[in-house]
Structures are given as C-alpha cells and as structure tokens.
Measured scan of single mutants.
Amino acid sequence: MIINNLKLIREKKKISQSELAALLEVSRQTINGIEKNKYNPSLQLALKIAYYLNTPLEDIFQ
C-alpha cells in the first residue's frame, strides 16, 4: 500500500487544495480524492505535484 503524505506536505507549505488544483490544472475534487487515497494519480500528475510542492516524489508517495 502506498503511504500518501500529500495533505501533510500541502498544509505545511500553506497551499490550499484549490490553489494546488489550479496549478496542476485539475479539480479540487481530484486533489481531495488523492489525499483520501480514493484516487491514485498518474505518474505525470504525481511528478507535477512533486514539482509544484518542491518536494521529492518519494516524500509525497511512499
């Protein structure tokens, strides 16, 4: 099972779900679904998340 630290990292960087969704060009519901482990992001989306949060991919999804 993948450990998902997206919410923790996003909140630590003081970025809202809506702000991150806008940067990634996805819906806020997509971010919410990823954070609640209801949706697994594509590799492309996971890499974009890591880029915009300036955090290694391995720290977000373990």
Rank of each mutant, 00 (worst) to 15 (best):
L45Y: 02
K14Q: 13
S16T: 14
I3H: 13
I49N: 00
K13I: 07
E11V: 10
K13M: 13
K14E: 08
K38R: 13
L8D: 09
Q62C: 12
N54W: 05
P41Q: 02
K12F: 10
I9K: 02
K14I: 05
L6R: 00
L57Y: 10
T55L: 06
I49A: 03
N40R: 15
S42L: 03
E19K: 13
L53E: 00
Q44C: 14
P56F: 06
P41F: 07
I49P: 00
E35D: 02
L45F: 07
N40T: 15
T55E: 09
V26G: 02
Y52W: 09
Y52L: 13
A22E: 11
I9E: 04
I60R: 01
E25M: 14
A22N: 10
Q17F: 03
A46Q: 15
N5T: 05
S18I: 11
Q29W: 12
N5W: 09
K13T: 06
I34R: 01
K36N: 15
A50I: 04
E58F: 09
N37D: 05
F61D: 02
L43Y: 12
P41L: 09
I3V: 12
Q29R: 14
T30I: 15
K48G: 05
R28Q: 14
L47G: 05
K36T: 15
A22M: 12
L23K: 09
Q29N: 13
I34W: 09
N4V: 05
K7L: 06
E35Q: 00
K14W: 06
E58K: 10
M1H: 12
N4S: 05
E35K: 02
S27E: 06
A21W: 03
N54Q: 14
Y51D: 06
D59G: 06
Q62R: 11
L47R: 11
E11D: 08
N32C: 08
E19T: 12
F61E: 01
L43D: 06
I49C: 03
E58I: 09
K12Y: 10
Y39N: 06
S27P: 14
N40H: 14
K7N: 04
R10F: 04
S42I: 04
V26Q: 02
I49L: 07
K38W: 14
I49Q: 00
G33E: 15
K36V: 09
L20Q: 00
K12T: 11
A21R: 02
S16F: 04
F61K: 01
E25A: 13
E58R: 10
L24Q: 00
P56W: 04
A21I: 03
E11H: 08
I34H: 02
E35T: 03
G33Y: 14
T30R: 07
Y39F: 14
Y51T: 07
K12I: 10
N4Q: 04
L53R: 00
L45K: 00
Q62L: 12
N32I: 15
L24F: 01
L8A: 15
P56I: 05
A50L: 03
N32A: 15
Q44M: 10
K48A: 10
S18K: 13
P56G: 05
A46F: 05
K14V: 04
N4H: 05
E35P: 01
D59Y: 10
N54V: 05
K36F: 06
N37S: 12
D59A: 11
D59M: 13
L45W: 03
M1A: 11
K7T: 07
R10Q: 02
E58T: 12
Y51A: 09
P56M: 05
G33N: 15
L24C: 15
K12M: 14
L23C: 09
A22C: 11
K13L: 14
Y52M: 10
P56E: 07
S18D: 13
E35R: 03
I2W: 12
I2D: 06
I15W: 06
S42P: 12
A50V: 05
K48V: 04
L23P: 00
Q62I: 12
V26L: 05
N5G: 05
Q62W: 13
S18T: 12
E58V: 09
L53N: 00
V26Y: 02
A21Y: 03
F61M: 04
K38G: 06
I3F: 11
N4K: 04
L43N: 07
K48T: 04
Q17N: 03
R10V: 05
K48Q: 08
L53D: 00
L53V: 03
I3N: 10
M1V: 12
I34D: 01
K14M: 10
K36Y: 07
K7S: 07
Y51W: 11
Q17W: 04
N54C: 10
A46T: 06
P56S: 08
K12V: 08
V26P: 00
M1R: 10
L47N: 08
M1K: 12
L47K: 12
A50T: 03
K14H: 13
A21H: 02
K14F: 08
K12W: 08
M1D: 08
P41H: 02
Q29F: 08
A21F: 03
I15N: 01
L43I: 11
I15R: 03
L8M: 13
K13C: 13
L6Y: 00
L23N: 07
S16V: 03
K48L: 08
S42C: 07
A22H: 10
L20V: 00
E19D: 11
L57Q: 04
R10A: 03
S42K: 06
R10W: 05
I34N: 02
L23V: 13
K36A: 13
K7M: 07
E11L: 13
N37A: 09
Q44Y: 12
V26N: 01
S18A: 14
S27W: 03
K7W: 05
I3Q: 10
S42H: 07
F61I: 04
E58L: 10
K48D: 04
I60W: 03
N32S: 13
L20D: 00
Q44H: 11
K12Q: 13
P56K: 09
M1C: 15
T30Y: 15
A46E: 03
T55K: 05
L20F: 07
N5L: 06
N5Y: 08
T30M: 13
S16A: 06
L23Q: 08
L20S: 00
I2A: 10
Y51I: 08
Y51C: 09
Q29I: 10
T55G: 02
K13E: 06
N4P: 04
L24S: 05
L20P: 00
Y52D: 00
Q62N: 10
A21T: 03
N5R: 11
F61T: 02
E19G: 09
I31E: 00
Y39C: 12
L23W: 14
K38S: 10
L57K: 04
L47D: 04
I34F: 05
N37M: 13
A22D: 11
Y39E: 07
E25R: 15
S42A: 06
E19R: 14
I34A: 01
R10H: 02
E58Y: 10
